[in-house]
Simulated assay, not measured.
Amino acid sequence: MNLNYPLILGSKSPRRKEILTKAGFEFSTEAKDTEESYPLDMPHTEVAAFLAEKKGQAFAEDEKYTDKIILTADTTVLIDNELLEKPQDEEEAFSMLSKLSGRAHQVVSGFCVLLNGKFEKYSDETLVYFNPIEEEMIWDYIRNHKPFDKAGAYGIQEGIGLTHIEKLEGSYFTVMGLPIHKVYQALAAYSKG
């Protein structure tokens, strides 16, 4: 897709970069550190889009991003209406993966498109079904893959994500961190046709 403005992916995530590249977009990557807090009374399904917009606001404050499309994103994992964020250590990662074992959970990926001070935010949700995971397998995954940069302590494209997810209701790429089908539709508004 040929866009009318340069595209910047505002993320350090190698997974989001890979998805956007495979979808055929030309872009550069820049990330700004953003404090990832949200109102405690916010519905958990809205947190990902809220944080994606917050990440976009970090770019809006800088004039050098005028006439550039900024794409930011965030992913959250929910089970029993509990938000599973990025684990702080091995014990927290083990606790999260134990909760997900043999159960279904929601993954919500939100993204924000920013151009010249105008924000548009979107989100997409996928239901993920995990087969039961043995304790030894969980510890092995944590030690080998160190999933401390991933909401819910796992990546769908590696380790137990590959071997223990039984089925999805929704988009694989939403679980990976970027609902590319919705991103494509959103960016089409800025294409040369």
Rank of each mutant, 00 (worst) to 15 (best):
A48G: 08
M42L: 15
S191L: 07
I160L: 13
V77H: 02
G159Y: 03
K192V: 14
K17Q: 15
A188I: 01
S109W: 01
T75E: 01
R143C: 00
G155A: 14
K99R: 15
L162E: 12
I180W: 07
K121Q: 12
E46A: 13
Y190T: 12
D89S: 01
F119H: 15
H145A: 08
K32A: 02
L178H: 05
A60P: 00
A49H: 02
K12T: 15
P6I: 12
E61Y: 00
C112K: 04
Y154T: 10
S37P: 00
E91T: 11
Y122C: 10
H181N: 13
E61K: 14
T29Q: 15
A49V: 05
K12N: 14
S98M: 04
A73R: 01
A73I: 08
A186D: 04
A151H: 05
F94N: 10
K86T: 03
T34Q: 02
E135V: 01
L40I: 07
D80K: 11
G170W: 10
A153I: 07
V128D: 01
V183F: 09
G110F: 06
I138Q: 08
I69E: 02
A31G: 08
A104I: 01
S28D: 13
K118H: 13
Q57H: 11
D62F: 00
Y184C: 06
K192A: 14
Q157I: 04
L51I: 14
T76A: 07
E120Y: 04
A188T: 10
I165D: 09
E26P: 00
S98L: 01
S191P: 01
S95Q: 11
K32N: 03
E166Y: 06
T21W: 01
E36N: 06
G24D: 08
Y5Q: 04
L97N: 06
A188Y: 11
Y38R: 04
L168P: 02
Q157N: 10
A151Y: 02
L20Q: 04
G10R: 09
K118A: 13
N81A: 11
H44I: 14
P6E: 09
G177A: 10
H145F: 15
N144D: 06
M137L: 12
L83S: 05
F111W: 08
